[in-house]
């Protein structure tokens, strides 16, 4: 570990170039015959955090699973419409789905580290497969763990099983694992719903740092969380986008009655 000690607390790579923006256009998603996302147009502006809120079953998760084409992995699921990464349609037949997922990372509701792997191997899993060499791999893992705010807690036990970490640490490990692939967009599907308030706070603080490098979409059930972390907020209901705008506006002066009812807690 001498190499690791040498470069002290150097901040992880400064923003080399702005992250891309994402434009969802006419997106519809189905499970078998059931339509869960019913024609959504939504922009995720570059280097911003966009929160997606709405009651359970409104299609939030399904929609973001279409943004990295994970939706199609479910048997019987399909989608229509376009998702543009800057100007490239990720559903274009010429586009490789693997490349899409490397550019658009994802963090899930429940921490899901690979149980058979160590902390190091979890973070290294993505880059290893894209042929990152051994010496560079170590650095890549360290950078990712630092960006996820986990390095200082785990640097002396990288070879321990990932499941030895606490729930909050496991979720930050999953964030590090996603970052290690160096994505340009990160999708978070209720990343704090299984965590306690302290662990939640740590992840919310992370988002602020991360958005200098990546464009972020976060699905959340928790409206306070949306208010704390998001630049913009989108409100979904029954598979449709009801309203999207600066977070401040959505929570104080929503234009749509249904948005107002939801954010004031009249239903949900």
């Amino acid at each position: 570990m001498p190499g690791v000690q040498a470069d002290k607390k150097q901040p992880p790579a400064a923003p080399s170039r702005p992250a891309p923006s994402v434009h969802v256009r006419g997106l519809r998603a189905f499970y078998g015959r059931a339509e869960r996302v019913k024609g959504i147009d939504l922009d995720l502006p570059a280097n911003e955090v966009t929160a997606i809120i709405g009651p359970s079953g409104c299609g939030k998760s399904t929609m973001i699973r279409c943004i990295n084409r994970l939706h199609e992995e479910i048997a019987g699921a399909r989608s229509e419409g376009r998702v543009l990464l800057d100007s490239v349609n990720i559903y274009d037949p010429a586009v490789d789905v693997i490349a899409v997922r490397r550019a658009i990372g994802m963090v899930f509701q429940r921490p899901n580290p690979f149980p058979a792997m160590s902390i190091f191997d979890n973070v290294a899993a993505g880059p290893r497969l894209s042929g990152v060499r051994r010496e560079r791999l170590r650095q890549r893992v360290q950078d990712a763990l630092e960006s996820a705010g986990l390095w200082h807690e785990v640097h002396d036990r990288l070879s321990q099983p990932a499941l030895a970490l606490s729930g909050g640490q496991q979720q930050r490990l999953c964030i590090a694992r996603a970052l290690a692939v160096e994505p340009e967009v990160i999708l978070m599907d209720e990343p704090c719903s299984a965590l306690d308030p302290t662990a939640t706070l740590r992840i919310e603080e992370l988002l602020d740092d991360l958005k200098s490098r990546v464009t972020i979409a976060i699905v959340t059930h928790n409206m306070q969380q949306a208010a704390r972390v998001a630049d913009r907020t989108a409100f979904l209901l029954d598979g449709e986008l009801i309203e999207v705008g600066p977070t401040q506006e959505i929570f104080t002066t929503p234009r749509d009655r249904r948005t107002e009812d939801y954010v004031t807690g009249k239903f949900g």
Binding site: L70, I98, R101, M106, F108, P115, R177, A178
Partner: peptide, 14 residues
């Protein structure tokens, strides 16, 4: 668990 397959797919692992 399906979660693990999701995690791997989301990392761009074939």
């Amino acid at each position: 668990p399906r979660d693990l397959r999701d995690a791997a797919h989301a990392l761009g692992i074939s």
